[in-house]
């Protein structure tokens, strides 16, 4: 609602003198808060109002398209159970994501250790990606049993591929000068990996992690669609089956929020533990 208020450019900017010198340009360039947060928020709120109004004016039935206010009240009424479903999905996403990391990292190291191994494994990896995961899920349930395992495997299968590729590219794109530097100090193969290749790959690893965490949410929901007694994916299936569309919408919104929050967690971990990595990406974009 306060999106019309001028964002305090001089307030959030560290160099107020620049802003004073070139007020117009300074405003456009520096109003990050206004442009990055308030503007999209304003548009979003406007959209909600239009949605609410459209549902009221055209009297759209609630099982087809519930108004935002109805989604809110229906979801709040089920806050307890929905919270449990959210935690269940979160658990699958996080565990699946961790499994992806634990498998991708050594796999990428192994793959990049020699061209022969790389050309032996790479086609297999591509094969795992060409299998439609939704089709694979019910088969996995039969093989692995109706428990958490098939959900984790699906999450892993959806999330790990971009991660392996990102790490492998990072490990391979170390400049020859850095490797030569290591050799000039008699670096062993392990030292080269641990002290040169892996640190160099960190920005690549994090861009892979950002893709992987978003995909892990998708994977977890696919797993829950097929076999689950808990979770937001399960909730969407059961809610729509009983035409409780507002609750399904509520679950959908929670999934989106979960995706955004987890993504930001990865971003923050990078900023805190690998500030040079985050900085190198920012300068690359700028």
């Amino acid at each position: 609602m306060n999106s019309n208020n001028p964002p305090s450019a001089s307030g959030n900017s560290s160099s107020a003198t620049d802003v004073a010198d070139t007020p117009k340009i300074g405003f456009w360039r520096r109003s990050n808060l206004g442009q990055d947060v308030l503007l999209p928020l304003g548009v979003f709120i406007l959209l909600l109002i239009v949605w609410e109004a459209a549902v009221q004016i055209f009297t759209i039935p609630v099982y087809l398209l519930p108004a935002p206010s109805v989604i809110w009240t229906d979801s709040i009424a089920l806050a307890g159970p929905i919270g449990e479903h959210t935690l269940a999905t979160l658990r699958t996403v996080v565990l699946g994501f961790i499994i992806s990391i634990v498998i991708s990292l050594p796999l990428a190291v192994f793959m990049t250790s020699s061209p022969v191994i790389s050309s032996a494994i790479y086609p297999l990896l591509v094969l795992t990606q060409s299998i439609p995961k939704v089709a694979l899920a019910p088969i996995l349930v039969v093989i692995l049993g109706a428990n958490e395992l098939p959900r984790l495997v699906i999450t892993f299968l959806v999330a790990f591929f971009p991660l392996v590729i990102a790490i492998a590219i990072g490990l391979m794109s170390v400049p020859a000068e850095l490797l030569e530097l290591g050799r000039s100090f008699k670096a062993s193969k392990f030292q080269e990996l641990y002290r040169i290749r892996l640190p160099y790959a960190v920005p690549f690893i994090f861009s892979g992690l950002k893709v992987a965490i978003a995909l892990a949410v998708v994977g977890a929901v696919v797993g829950e669609f097929v076999n689950a007694d808990k979770g937001l994916g399960y909730l969407i299936i059961t809610a729509t089956a009983f035409f409780k569309t507002p609750v399904a919408f509520g679950a959908l919104i929670l999934l989106s929020i979960m995706g955004i929050v987890l993504f930001q967690v990865v971003v923050i971990i990078e900023r805190i533990f690998f500030p040079w990595s985050a900085a190198s990406q920012e300068t690359a974009i700028a």
């Binding site: 000068e177 850095l178 530097l181 040169i196």
Partner: peptide
């Protein structure tokens, strides 16, 4: 071990 090398570029570890 008793040799030091300086390359044309600094070649420092960015991290």
């Amino acid at each position: 071990q008793d040799t030091g090398i300086v390359f044309q570029m600094p070649v420092l570890l960015p991290w």
